[in-house]
C-alpha cells in the first residue's frame, strides 16, 4: 500500500509527524479565534481532516506548520461567511506606522500590566476585531515570524507589522479600560 493511498500506514504516520504534532497549537489558535471550546474542537478536527485529505499537496515537512494553519484559517473564514457574521474590515492598512499613533504617556497611566488576570487578557483578545486578532494569535499561539504570518494571512509584510502594532495598542487600551469595549466580532 503506497503512502498516497488514503488510509495507508505510511500516510497516517506522515500525517501524525507533520500535522498532528501541531494539534495543541491548532486547538489553541482555534480557541482564540472562535472564543468557544466546542467550536474550537470542531474547527481543529475539520482542519486535521482537511489536511489529511490534502496531504499530498504538502511540499515538505518544514512547510507543514504554516500550511496547516492556513487551512485552519481558511475553514474558519468560510464558516464566518456562511454564518453571515460580519467581519470588521473597516481598518486602514498602511504599511508604515504613523508616529502620531504612538502615545508615550499611555504607558505612564497604566496599572502594572503584568498583574492582569489571564482570563481578562483572553476576553480582551476575543473582543478585538478579527483582522487584528488573527495576527496576534498567529504570533503568540503559533510563534510565527512576520513573514510566515504574511503568508498565512495573504497580506504584505508591512501590513502584518501594522496590524500587530495596532492590535497590541487596542489590546492595551482594552486592558486599561475594560468597560470601553471595541466592536465585537466573531
Amino acid at each position: 500500500m503506497s503512502s498516497r493511498e488514503p488510509g495507508s500506514p505510511d500516510r497516517i504516520r506522515r500525517f501524525e509527524a507533520d500535522v498532528l504534532v501541531h494539534l495543541d497549537d491548532l486547538y489553541r489558535a482555534a480557541l482564540r479565534l472562535t472564543g468557544n471550546a466546542a467550536e474550537a474542537q470542531d474547527l481543529t478536527q475539520d482542519t486535521c481532516l482537511r489536511a489529511f485529505e490534502r496531504l499530498d499537496q504538502l511540499r515538505s515537512p518544514a512547510a507543514a506548520r504554516v500550511w496547516v494553519f492556513t487551512i485552519l484559517r481558511s475553514i474558519f473564514l468560510r464558516r464566518i461567511e456562511r454564518q453571515s457574521r460580519t467581519v470588521d474590515v473597516q481598518i486602514i492598512d498602511s504599511p508604515l506606522l504613523e508616529a502620531g499613533e504612538v502615545l508615550h504617556d499611555t504607558y505612564e497611566a497604566l496599572r502594572p500590566i503584568q498583574e492582569t488576570p489571564l482570563g481578562e487578557v483572553r476576553e480582551a483578545l476575543g473582543r478585538l476585531p478579527l483582522p487584528f486578532r488573527e495576527p496576534l494569535v498567529l504570533a503568540h499561539v503559533g510563534g510565527f515570524s512576520y513573514k510566515e504570518i504574511s503568508e498565512i494571512l495573504a497580506i504584505p509584510l508591512g501590513t502584518v507589522m501594522s496590524r500587530l502594532f495596532r492590535a497590541r495598542r487596542l489590546l492595551r487600551s482594552e486592558l486599561r479600560e475594560p468597560a470601553r469595549r471595541t466592536r465585537s466580532t466573531p
Binding site: 498532528l20 474542537q41 489571564l118 503568540h140 499561539v141 489590546l171
Partner: peptide, 25 residues
C-alpha cells in the same frame, strides 16, 4: 501576558484520538 494567555490551555485529551478515528481509512 499574551503568550501566557494563549498557551496556557491545552487541547482536550480525546481530541487526538478523535482526529485519528475520523481519518478515512
Amino acid at each position: 501576558l499574551l503568550v501566557q494567555a494563549s498557551r496556557a490551555e491545552t487541547a482536550p485529551a480525546d481530541l487526538r484520538s478523535n482526529v485519528l478515528c475520523s481519518l478515512p481509512t
